[in-house]
Computed example of a mutant assay.
Amino acid sequence: MFMFNPDQVEVAISEAQSIPALLGKHMEQEGKNTKIFLMALANYIEKTSPLSKDEIFEKINLEDLQSTSDLSSQMQLLLVHMVKVGVEDGLVTKIYTTGDVARFFGVTVATVNNWLSLKRLTGVEKEARYKQARIPETATYTSATGDVMTIREAAEIYMTNKKRTSVRPLTPSQELQELLHEIIFFEKKYGGELKNTLAQKMEKLTPAEQRDLNEWKHLLQEVEDYRV
């Protein structure tokens, strides 16, 4: 990561302000294409900088761009915003595991994995070398009702409640026990192991059974990951 001194910050912002004017002729000829480019930049900001998107999105309006001057001013706002985020000191993003996020929301690890599969958690990358997804605090969770919350906000709420109730976080051993309890719940519900029950059912699964099947599989995978 590059570090910037105050003079370099000033230069970077100045360049962001100047570049749109230099592209004036191009924007005049390619106005429609430039608008599409600006929309892509706006999407990038929304996906990678969710905590600051409201601030910048209050200032820009990409729906009603008409003149080259409008295109230039909107591009300038986007570029300056991106530069300011890029040169900000101490901008370190915390990374959480699925277990961490499960604790923040008071759900199981399997539920968090389901959220990932259903794209209810966005801004997350799962790399092969990691047993669990690495979830940045800037990732966003969308509830079933459409409410959006960043993982940072969920962590802050969790920590505040933890201080009030003095609840200790689960140790890895305790978390493994929680996973096993969840698996036992499904085994009792369906009268046996997954491979001998839902996984073998010949009739079409009901929506509830399909959800249980998915969560049960995730639980078994999480236990397997803990034992590796």
Rank of each mutant, 00 (worst) to 15 (best):
M27R: 05
G31T: 14
L22V: 10
E28D: 13
E28M: 03
M27V: 05
N33V: 11
H26I: 03
M39K: 15
L38N: 04
L23I: 08
P20L: 05
E28Y: 01
A12L: 15
L41Q: 09
P20G: 04
K32T: 11
M27S: 07
G24N: 08
V11C: 02
M39A: 03
I19N: 00
Q29M: 07
P20I: 02
N43A: 08
A21M: 11
G24I: 06
A40Y: 04
T34K: 06
N33L: 15
T34A: 14
L41G: 05
Q29T: 13
A42D: 09
N43T: 12
Q17C: 06
I13M: 11
A42K: 09
L23F: 08
L23M: 15
A40K: 07
H26S: 14
L22N: 09
T34G: 03
E10V: 11
E10W: 01
N33T: 06
I36K: 03
G24K: 12
M39G: 01
K32E: 05
F37E: 01
P20W: 03
L38A: 08
A40S: 08
E15Y: 09
Y44W: 03
K25P: 02
N33P: 02
V9Q: 11
Q8L: 12
S18A: 13
Q29P: 02
I45K: 06
I45W: 10
S14W: 05
T34Y: 04
M27T: 00
S18I: 02
E10C: 13
V9E: 14
A16S: 04
I45E: 09
A16P: 00
E10T: 15
G24V: 10
F37G: 02
I13D: 02
L38K: 01
L41D: 01
N43M: 09
M27E: 02
F37M: 06
S14F: 09
L41K: 10
M39R: 13
M39T: 07
M39F: 04
G24Q: 13
Y44F: 08
K35Q: 11
V9P: 00
G24W: 12
I13W: 01
Y44A: 15
E28P: 01
H26T: 02
A16V: 05
N43R: 09
P20D: 01
Y44H: 04
G24D: 11
L41S: 00
K25N: 14
A42R: 09
Y44Q: 05
A16T: 05
Y44N: 02
H26Q: 06
P20E: 00
A12N: 08
I36D: 11
Q29A: 12
Y44L: 08
Q17P: 00
A16W: 06
L22M: 11
I19K: 05
Q29G: 05
V11H: 08
E30T: 07
S14K: 14
H26E: 07
A21I: 10
Q17N: 15
Q8T: 05
F37H: 08
E30M: 12
L38S: 04
E15N: 09
V9M: 10
E28G: 06
A12W: 06
H26F: 15
K25V: 04
M39V: 10
M39C: 04
V11Q: 13
M27G: 05
G31F: 00
